[in-house]
Design a protein around this nucleic acid. Sequence first.
RNA 1: GUCCCUAUCGUCUAGCCCGGUCUAGGACAUUGGAUUUUCAUUCCAAGAACCGGGGUUCGAAUCCCCGUGGGGACGCCA
Length: 438
Amino acid sequence: MSNVRVRFAPSPTGFFHIGSARTALFNWLYARHTGGTFVLRIEDTDSERNSEEYLNVIKDGMKWLGLDWDEGPDVGGNFGPYFQSKRDGIYREYLEILRSKGRAYDKDGAVFFKVSGEPQVLHDAVYGDVERVEEKDFPIFRSNGTPVFHFVNVVDDICMGITNVIRGQDHLTNTNKHIELFKAFGAPMPQFAHIPLILKSEGQGKMSKRDRGALIEEYQVKNFMPEAVRNYLCMLGWNPKNGKEIMPIEEIISLFDFSGIVKSNARFDERKMAHFNTEHLRALPRDKFRAIARRAVESESDIDLGKDEAYIGKVFDLCQPKAANMESLPSMVRYFFSDDYPFDSAGREKIFKKGDPLARLAEAFEVLKNLESFDKDSIYAAICSLAENAGRKSSEYFQIVRFAVTGQAGGPDLFPMLEILGRERVLSRIGSAFSKIG
RNA sequence: GUCCCUAUCGUCUAGCCCGGUCUAGGACAUUGGAUUUUCAUUCCAAGAACCGGGGUUCGAAUCCCCGUGGGGACGCCA
């Protein structure tokens, strides 16, 4: 264990924003990299609403991303309470310290902090030295008696022994207020590290909760792999400098440091995120893929997988190398579990463009019917020789057979697919396809 | 408006600190090929960038200044 202590201090608003998630992630990475402690502290000063439910959104999201905290809600710790709503007494004490030093005064029923008026230099781990003067006194307690963010944030960081403050660059200028407070308390200054913001994929400004892809919940619902989302987020504003992007988290943890953090803001790119997801999906061991594929198909569609576990397993194994994401998987496997599958009109058009595909389908039907063994190699060999005898390209047969049996122009490997489906089903589907697609 | 940060392909970025090895590298996306087994896979290839202007220097993507663009902060929100 090192003495590094970092924290993630979200306010439970009912959303877990992708920017917040990345801030949590970078804090977590730094804690894990250094062997330090990752604290989760809840900034719920605005607590009249259903914050238990709102809090769960954040906790669930963090758990989903694998960001486990060492101190905080549910796990406790020696620096609690970890809810600001329960720290009121502490804030009063710290206010008295400022009062006794002549740094706090009442005004309009509120309490204000008296700034020094001197330029403060922030020694930021990412941005270097940033010099700025905080000119105006600012409120630290509202006229309704509740403490203000800048004050509680600093007090909590002092009380909790936070050594490194890693947060969004939108706080860069706020930091002057915080430095003033740390100095006024005579407390040791944590090291600050500001990280660049995540911008909208198009248009202007930073990602807001209304932008597509902005909420972690979206990825949970779409059955993204949390490892993939986390991996992508790591690469948004941080660079491992080893030329790699897709990496296991252990490797990222060992490489993570402030020098790899980029200074300029990054635009969110959902296509690249999708790519990370696909790569992680492909790399999954078969049994893991089967498990999440099952969950995705069962939760997102009306498909009844049935009880034949061996069959289900074969289907998912076949689809894994072709599956781009879990969202499209149900439509990719539907025909394996139901004879009532739709025929893709664009696919039909493509296949019917040249020649007479139904005639070839009829030929293929005869060959498949009379095949001795209905396994992938025999099927392949039989159709190839059929094509050769007819003086045609074998693909002219492959395409129409696939379309008749699955309703699609593309999909998993054709021959193992036919083998898994079985002769009986293949023949009956071809039989009824003539009237459906003709 | 004031202050702060930032600026390399459409996007994420390497290179910049310690100027020459940069005809600027990788990834995503795009386009085109290949795998004489379909295909949504895989492989190969192509196009695509140093914001502008000054300066320093024998030499600048790299250092300095000024513009401009982008972002953020200026709440009794967090």
